[in-house]
Amino acid sequence: MADGMTTATLKVNGEDRTVVFPTHHTLLEVLREECQLTGTKHGCELGECGACTVLIDGKPALSCVVLAAEMEGREIETVEGMHTANGPHPLQTTFAELGAAQCGYCTPGILLTAKSLLAEKPFADDPEIREALAGNLCRCTGYNKIIEAVTWAGAIARGEDDGAPTQEQVFGATLNEGAQND
């Protein structure tokens, strides 16, 4: 079965790429190996961790459980497509500023899921952010900085100035005020 090969033209980050790959290979494998877009990560290859999330026609999808052979004619976006000639996406800026990426391994999948969320719901609030990202595991951050970074990026995208993290979110709470922080 490993001998069956497929030739396909994939549209990745707006660029057409004609690639030849074993027919049973996943989109994850073809992106990383044939397209050399190693920004897309893998944590399980079983659809459990969310690290391999890419956008297919603007919707988050687990590239480890999608066959590349079925992707012709679809718009695929990877993390490499988020930083354009205009500079980084606001999510990339806020993630970097806040340290929402620590080891950075789950980050590409989370950025793309969040990008899709903000495109669909520009005013996404805390519960909506949590719900949208619930399929993406992160072992470093405790998720807090990620939520703050998505919230902030949403505000920047809306042209608002008030989405930046608070003093408490950046430095921690201060004594004598902790009780009022709820």
Partner: peptide, 23 residues
């Protein structure tokens, strides 16, 4: 102070080369 990690931008753009990314 809080400041951007030196590897911050490379991690959010997919440029960081982890071991399995190396060919």
């Amino acid at each position: 102070k809080p400041f951007r990690r030196v590897d911050g931008m490379s991690k959010v753009t997919g440029q960081t080369i982890f071991a399995d990314d190396f060919v």
